[in-house]
Design a protein around this nucleic acid. Structure first.
Lengths: 217, 217
DNA sequence: GAACATTATGTCAGCCTCTGACATTCGACA
DNA sequence: TGTCGAATGTCAGAGGCTGACATAATGTTC
C-alpha cells in the first residue's frame, strides 16, 4: 500500500519523526480500507487502531476525531492547491489562476502513485456519508477563507473591505463541490479517472455564466 | 418566550398533537436558551431534557441529534423559503425569484413575534460552533437540491441534463451563507436587525457579478 | 556508554451522544 | 368504560472522545 504522502512535504529526519509518520500513514491507510469495505458508520475507531496495533488513545493523538482520518488525504490535496495557487503567475486574473491551480492539483494526484483511484472513491464515500459530508463542508469553508486571503494578496486588496475575494473563493469552491457531487452520483459515467473529474469541473465552470444570466431561454 | 412556530403551519387539532407540539417547542426553546447562555458544547442533552421535565430518550425521539434541536428554527425558515419561491410569479427569472423569496422570508421573520433577534443570535452561535456549522452546511446543500428542483420546474428543464438549476441554487446558497458569516463576524455593524441582514445580503449579491468578472481592476 | 530530559504510547476511568428493547401510561374512539 | 395505539420512561450498552498518570522509547549531553 502506498502512503498517501504529498510529494512536496519534506521527509522527516529523526527516527522518531519517521516512526510517527509511518504510524500516521498506516492509520489513514487502515481507516480508508475499512471505511470503503464496511462503511464509515460500521467501522469503529478501535478497529482502526488495533489494525495498526496501536491503542485507541493513540489514534486520538493523531486525529482529533474519526472524520479527520477519513478526510486526511483530501486535506493534503487542498494544501497543495493553496501552494499551486500562490505560485500562479501574477499576470493571470483571479479566476484563471484558480482554474489553473485546480488543474495542477489533479495532474499531481494523477502522477502520484496509486492514490488516484483511492481519491476518487473517497468522494463517493463522503457524499454518501452525512457525517463525513458535514465535516468536509466545514473544512471547505476554512479553505475558502485561505483562498480569499491569497486572492486579496495577489490583487493588493483588503479582504475586510472588498467582498470580491471571499465571494469568488466561495463560488469557486461551490462549483468544485458540485462537480464532486455529480461525479459521486455516477462514477461510471466519468470513467473513474482524473480526466473525467477534470472535464466535469470544466463543464460546470462553463455553465456558471449562463446559470447566472438573467434569462435561461 | 414565544414559540418559534412558522405562522403558516396548521395547528394540530387533537390534545395529543397539541401536547406533542408543546413539548417540541419547549425543547427547542430550552435548548436555545441554554446554548446561548452556556455554549453549545457545554450544554448536555440531559440538561435540556430535564429543563422540560422529559427523559433524555424522549428528546431523541423528537430530534435525531443534538444539532437538530439547535437548527430547528432555521429549518422552518428554510421551509418557508421554499414555499415563497414556489409562489413567485412565473414571469420572474430564476435569480429575481430567489432574491424576492429571500426578502419575503426575512420580512416574515420580522413580523413574527420576538423570534427575530433570536434568529440573528443563532447565526452567531452557528458560526462560532464547528459542530453546528458543519450540520448547518450539510442541511444547506439539501436545501439547494430542493431549490434546484423548483427552479428546473419553473423553467421546464430536466435537472439531470441542465446544470444551471443546481449551479444557480448552489451559488445563491453560498452568497446567503457568506452574508450570514459577515453578519456573525460583526453583528453590531449591522444593527442587530433583519434590515441590516437583508442589506448585507443585497450588497453581496451586487458584488457577485464584479467578483466573477475577469479582471478586478 | 551512562545518565538525564523529552516525547510518544499505553492504561484506566469517566462523560456524553445515541440506540434498542421492554414496560408503562395516556389520549383516541367506539 | 374498555380497548387500542401512540407517547413516554427506564434500563442497558455501544461508541466517540478526554484527562490523568504511568511507562517506554528516543534524543541529548557529558
Amino acid at each position: 500500500m502506498a502512503t498517501p504522502t504529498t510529494a512536496a512535504d519534506p521527509q522527516p529526519v529523526g527516527l522518531r519523526e519517521r516512526k510517527k509518520r509511518r504510524t500516521r500513514d498506516a492509520l489513514v491507510d487502515a481507516a480508508h480500507r475499512l471505511f470503503l469495505c464496511h462503511g464509515y458508520g460500521r467501522t469503529t475507531v478501535d478497529e482502526i487502531a488495533s489494525e495498526v496495533e496501536v491503542s485507541q488513545r493513540t489514534f486520538f493523538r493523531y486525529f482529533a476525531n474519526k472524520e479527520e482520518v477519513a478526510l486526511a488525504v483530501l486535506a493534503e490535496a487542498e494544501e497543495a492547491f493553496l501552494e499551486f495557487l500562490r505560485a500562479r503567475p501574477a499576470g493571470e486574473n483571479p479566476l484563471e489562476a484558480m482554474r489553473g491551480a485546480v488543474r495542477e492539483v489533479w495532474q499531481a494526484v494523477d502522477r502520484g502513485q496509486d492514490s488516484g483511484p483511492a481519491a476518487l472513491e473517497l468522494f463517493e464515500l463522503i457524499e454518501s456519508t452525512p457525517t463525513l459530508l458535514a465535516a468536509h463542508l466545514r473544512h471547505s469553508i476554512q479553505q475558502e477563507v485561505e483562498v480569499a486571503r491569497i486572492l486579496a494578496d495577489r490583487e493588493g486588496l483588503d479582504p475586510a473591505v472588498d467582498l470580491r475575494p471571499r465571494l469568488l473563493a466561495a463560488v469557486f469552491g461551490t462549483v468544485v463541490r458540485i462537480s464532486h457531487l455529480a461525479y459521486a452520483a455516477d462514477p461510471d459515467a466519468h470513467r473513474h479517472s482524473m480526466d473525467g473529474m477534470l472535464a466535469l469541473i470544466e463543464r460546470h465552470f462553463d455553465q456558471l455564466g449562463p446559470a447566472l444570466a438573467g434569462s435561461w431561454r
